[in-house]
Amino acid sequence: MTSPSDFELSRRKLLAGTAASVALTAAPSIVNAQAPTIAEQNAAAGSATLKVSFTVNGAARDLTLDTRTTLLDALREHLHLTGTKKGCDHGQCGACTVIIGGRRINSCLTLAVMHEGDSITTIEGLGTPEKMHPMQAAFVKHDGYQCGYCTPGQICSAVAVLDEIKAGIPSHVSADLNTPVQLTSAELRERMSGNICRCGAYSNIAEAISEVAGRPA
């Protein structure tokens, strides 16, 4: 991607950063235009930008983004909320899990411009080091990590999993589709299968989630 990673950059830096691609593809009229906007520059570079507004952790955010920007990159590179991690960038590892409107999704497999008006919660919005969310506190207590890279995704996913069980959403291991979901270890493990931990801290992750869920692991 040739677009700048930070719209807070000065236009001088921006022009320097995109000069190569502009020079390669821009129409002469654009190069000569006075005070081109970011959108115009990117259009000249063969890309497209759009404005998008959404709420992140309770704060309204307005961004002008290359249409290709994933929600994950918007959070990390544009809003500097680097708690959400980029693992595989293909929806296979779950490190980028965030919660939108109460539902967990892979932020790497969705475009930022598709989230106009949405309310997004990242790991930074769940709690702070001084005032941790119960799930964050349980991960610390049970040592639910080793390197910690997958942890924000694990925690966001786990918080949403408990809400899904409360809402009565069944899973692959639910024995009966027409009775309330039982809060078993098998249910928690199945529901967390979209979050991979290469360190293999699964048993401690399961213990942390179980404690918050109010059941023995």
């Binding site: 929806g91 779950g94 899990t97 539902r103 967990r104 999704i105 892979n106 497999l109 969705t110 996913s157 949403a160 999993v161 899904e164 809402a167 009565g168 959403i169 069944p170 899973s171 692959h172 639910s174 589709l177 027409n178 529901r191 967390m192 299968s193 979209g194 979050n195």
Partner: peptide, 27 residues
């Protein structure tokens, strides 16, 4: 999760739940 699908078309509910991850099924 739809109650009618779970009751009358359980094979569909089961197939969906056997696919992908919770995050992907939400999207």
């Amino acid at each position: 999760a739809d109650a009618r699908v779970r009751r009358d078309y359980a094979v569909l509910s089961r197939a969906l739940l056997a696919g992908a991850s919770g995050q992907l099924r939400n999207k």
